[in-house]
């Protein structure tokens, strides 16, 4: 039976890795279409991808968007997590569920809702719309990680600081924050990935001139099938894996993702 379990686990692992490995290997194709395995190998599609303005512009947009959304969502999440863990008030459970709501509302509904609401308010700025949507989808992961970090943390230290005469805010900044820092940084890294990779929530919010990288890739593959998308994808895989390793070493991936 042990054998059987190993076989099934190996099959699941192969299934999970298959599309990723195929993209990475095919990105080194020399031909006009991605091949697995490539008949002749080349790096030329990397050069092509980096030279393609549709990708580079969108990559910059996505990077900025991820950084701004994460920087805005982090203080919000810190305050909320702190209030949930340290505060005592009726309806804490319900509130915690409400804070995670953006995870459960279908992303396509969030995207549409922000589109129509911002149109109503006369907001035509693509950047503003995207930042709003991305703060919403990154925020739950940050709250979850920070709540987990605060729950594991020894309350006595914070109280000691207060007993010794430190102002609560001072105690927070000098004692609590440094102790939960690995959790906060891991949450921020994950938020960066979530924002950078997200497609559905941006779906209705970009414009012909301002696009995000995942949507630019989606648009590109509608009309082209050359391996430059595989090259871009491989670079994305590398970045994601690097971030995953960092998070795993800092606090463990599972605590960030939840479950």
């Amino acid at each position: 039976m042990r054998r059987l379990l190993q076989v099934v686990a190996a099959l699941v692992a192969a299934f999970v890795l298959a599309p990723i490995v195929v993209v990475v290997v095919a990105s080194f194709s020399d031909g006009a279409v991605p091949q697995f395995p490539p008949r002749t190998w080349s790096l030329r599609w990397y050069a092509h991808a980096i030279g393609e303005a549709a990708f580079t512009d969108a990559a910059w947009n996505s990077a900025w968007l991820a950084v701004i959304a994460t920087l805005l969502a982090t203080p919000l999440a810190l305050a909320a997590a702190f209030a949930i863990v340290r505060g005592r008030f009726p309806g804490r459970q319900a509130l915690q569920a409400f804070l995670l709501a953006p995870l459960f509302v279908p992303a396509i509904v969030i995207s549409l809702a922000i589109l129509v609401a911002m149109a109503r308010l006369g907001v035509r700025d693509v950047g503003l719309r995207l930042v709003g949507a991305h703060v919403l989808v990154t925020f739950p992961y940050l709250v979850r990680t920070i709540i987990a970090s605060l729950t594991r943390f020894d309350l006595g230290l914070e109280e000691a600081a207060r007993t010794l005469g430190a102002h609560p805010l001072r105690g927070f900044l000098l004692v609590t924050l440094p102790l939960i820092r690995p959790g906060v940084i891991a949450g921020m890294l994950f938020a960066l990935i979530v924002s950078f990779d997200n497609v559905s929530v941006s779906l209705f919010l970009t414009s012909a001139r301002t696009n995000t990288l995942p949507l630019a890739i989606l648009n590109y593959v509608e009309y082209n099938f050359d391996p430059s998308v595989a090259a871009i994808s491989t670079m994305l895989v590398a970045v994601s894996l690097a971030a995953a390793l960092l998070i795993e070493r800092a606090v463990g991936l599972r605590r960030v993702v939840g479950g």
Partner: peptide, 28 residues
């Protein structure tokens, strides 16, 4: 953990494209 979470860490655009390269008409 990293292996099983990789679909979540890598953009769905990338993995969908991977399935096209693997399972498409002229795929692997």
């Amino acid at each position: 953990t990293i292996l099983i979470l990789s679909p979540l860490l890598i953009s769905i655009v990338v993995t969908s494209y991977g399935w096209v390269v693997l399972l498409g008409r002229n795929g692997a």
